[in-house]
């Protein structure tokens, strides 16, 4: 668990700066992006039960259930922006996935799924918004984005990783998120595949991989991400990535990032 001593208590007057959320709404193994408080009636104080960038286990949620409500700071952060963008992309990719699934079961479908290159083009447009004008993304921003796009990492894996070391847990979160982010750049838009590959990355970090899911290209991306994060551990900028032309995958990503510039130019000209 992360250290929350610095944000442990808040006076009752802080209630105006907090927003409440029923505990039953919260899901286990969902990343928290700010401190989470409960209100102690006897002490008349808000006490932090979880720090930012952490998650609740089902046992913890059960234990805290009598408090009924969690309180979190009201102020919106940049993380909210990336989460929203991620949710939008997930909805889009899931809708495509649904149509694909219907197609698999219905030999005479009413709706034709979009072609993979159309999905890829739409995804790239959404990714351009994420890169925005600053063209530099911090690790936690990408974690928030990818965590909103992908679902389904078994919480048990996260728990085991966090128990080993919080630092290691953070590192694998960053790495997996960047790999998935670049997978979207390279045209991997199958949401089911992305979810499974993300789980596979966490399994590999724990040495549990069954090697059933191998994507040579994404494995190359993982190596690249490790190299890049070794140079700039806080985050990555598109210009730095575009300068690295060493491998085939790097070349592909670099050419794809050209689209970010084109998108920005088109946006400026209002088209």
């Amino acid at each position: 668990m992360r250290d929350i001593s610095s944000i442990k208590k808040l006076p009752p007057e802080a209630a105006s700066d907090l927003r409440s959320e029923p505990i039953r709404v919260n899901q286990a193994y969902e990343l928290t992006w700010s401190a989470v408080y409960v209100f102690l009636k006897r002490n008349q104080k808000f006490v932090a039960v979880k720090g930012p960038k952490d998650f609740f286990t089902p046992e913890e949620l059960q234990k805290l259930a009598p408090f009924e409500v969690f309180f979190t700071p009201k102020r919106s952060t940049e993380i909210d922006y990336y989460q929203e963008k991620g949710r939008l992309l997930r909805r889009y990719l899931e809708s495509v996935w649904d149509v694909e699934q219907k197609l698999a079961s219905d030999p005479d479908p009413k709706e034709e799924p979009p072609a993979s290159f159309e999905v890829s083009a739409n995804t790239m447009e959404k990714i351009c918004e994420v890169w925005g004008t600053k063209r530099t993304l911090m690790n936690w921003e990408i974690v928030a984005y990818i965590d909103s796009v992908c679902r389904g990492v078994p919480g048990e894996l996260w728990l085991r990783l966090r128990e080993i070391s919080i630092q290691q847990f953070d590192e694998i979160l960053y790495r997996s998120s960047w790999v998935l982010f670049f997978a979207l750049h390279l045209g991997y838009t199958d949401i089911d595949f992305l979810n499974r590959y993300r789980t596979e990355l966490f399994k590999r970090a724990l040495g549990d991989s069954a090697e059933d899911l191998i994507s040579p290209e994404l494995d190359e991306v993982e190596k690249l991400v490790n190299t890049w994060l070794g140079k700039t551990p806080e985050g990555l900028s598109s210009s730095e990535i575009m300068e690295n032309w060493d491998s085939r995958v790097a070349q592909k990503i670099s050419f794809r990032l050209d689209q970010v510039n084109k998108y920005e130019e088109a946006r400026k000209h209002g088209s």
């Binding site: 159309e118 491998s247 085939r248 070349q251 050419f255």
Partner: peptide
């Protein structure tokens, strides 16, 4: 072996479909 460099790589989504 490392793949030799190509003049350009284009994802099909980037074409004027």
């Amino acid at each position: 072996e490392a793949t030799p460099k190509a003049f350009s790589y284009t994802e099909l989504g980037d074409l004027d479909t």
